[in-house]
């Protein structure tokens, strides 16, 4: 949720892309197994990742965001990448990740499962972090860039399929949600519709799922409160810092109505503008694209949750310059704000 500029965040810690924090035998291992089952040769899969299957099997290897991105990039090169991402996503949660999986397995509803997903995003979705808004009817679950680089389409597809797959697994029915992808229309959009059950749009500028509020709060059966509370106590306590793009995203979102410049942002983070630029590049992103993402997300928040009209949004985002706002919006999404709302929003 966008914080107001007065509640200042002081993010001085972030996770370096080379910090090894993600257990390789969690979902990376699942992806490796799936890719091997689909005849992707091992040497191609693990090329330049510094990983070896023999090590992963021992269950002690931690991998960095950098290695993880490399692995995903290798899979993305494969001809069946789209289907693999959906398949991987659908099986990813609750998974076999110790107490974390037990929590997801016994969460009383989707809302609580999402808080686990958010609080342990460094383990479950280190490159793309979730956040959600609610209005009176719908929940808007947005995925923002935590350093995906080239593999964003792959990760976005997998993560949305993961949340959907979890809901489908726990409810035993096929919920009908809306899925908005930022990537362009793929070769085989039908596969997405089949896997994600609902309505799917591409080239929308955001990676977002829109689901009825009822689905968020619908009680999930077969959950044991004892198992859940025991698992919650077993969850690791030491905090893992956010990735740098995520830190910058939150910092910008808190000032969405008057975005700071690259220099000002670097100053807040206590580094030079050149360092910030270089570090963001190491994470596969750059300052301007984070600014664009924040402004688009904020404008959608204003229009969907606060129900503001185009004029009021332009007032807040572009000092009342409607033409400028329209032009920016068109650049982010390829359509006008009114058309966007009419076509893509429920």
């Amino acid at each position: 949720m966008p914080r107001q500029p007065d509640t200042d965040v002081q993010p001085h810690h972030w996770r370096s892309p080379d910090e090894r924090h993600l257990p390789a035998h969690f979902h990376p291992a699942l992806l490796i197994e799936l890719a091997q089952a689909r005849d992707v040769p091992e040497h191609r899969l693990l090329r330049h990742t510094g990983l070896f299957t023999d090590d992963i099997v021992k269950g002690k290897v931690l991998i960095s965001d950098h290695q993880y991105r490399r692995l995903l990039d290798n899979v993305q090169q494969h001809c069946q990448a789209e289907e693999l991402a959906l398949l991987w996503g659908r099986q990813m949660l609750p998974g076999h990740y110790g107490p974390l999986s037990t929590c997801l397995q016994h969460a009383p509803n989707l809302a609580e499962a999402l808080t686990y997903l958010h609080d342990y995003r460094h383990d479950l979705c280190p490159l793309l972090f979730p956040q959600w808004w609610r209005d009176s009817q719908w929940c808007y679950l947005l995925w923002a860039d935590g350093g995906t680089g080239r593999v964003r389409p792959f990760v976005a597809r997998a993560m949305m399929a993961a949340v959907y797959g979890l809901a489908r697994y726990r409810t035993g029915r096929t919920p009908e949600w809306h899925f908005l992808f930022s990537q362009r229309r793929p070769a085989n959009p039908a596969a997405h519709e089949v896997s994600l059950g609902g309505r799917v749009w591409f080239g929308t500028g955001v990676d977002m799922m829109i689901l009825p509020l009822n689905d968020l709060n619908e009680p999930w059966l077969d959950s044991s409160t004892t198992a859940l509370s025991v698992a919650r106590h077993q969850l690791p306590r030491e905090p893992v810092p956010e990735s740098l793009p995520e830190v910058v995203y939150h910092l910008l979102m808190a000032r969405a109505e008057a975005l700071p410049s690259l220099e000002e942002t670097a100053g807040i983070l206590g580094m030079s503008a050149a360092s910030l630029k270089r570090r963001l590049r190491d994470c596969g992103t750059h300052f301007q694209s984070l600014c664009d993402e924040v402004r688009l997300h904020y404008s959608l928040y204003l229009s969907q949750v606060l129900r503001l009209g185009t004029e009021a949004i332009a007032e807040r985002l572009c000092n009342g310059d409607r033409a400028n706002f329209r032009r920016s919006f068109r650049r982010w999404t390829g359509m006008t704000p009114a058309r966007y709302r009419q076509w893509l929003m429920p």
Binding site: N188, A190, A191, H192, E193, V194, S195
Partner: peptide, 8 residues
């Protein structure tokens, strides 16, 4: 007959 996607 074609594979529409997934198990369809």
């Amino acid at each position: 007959m074609c594979r529409y996607g997934g198990d369809r």
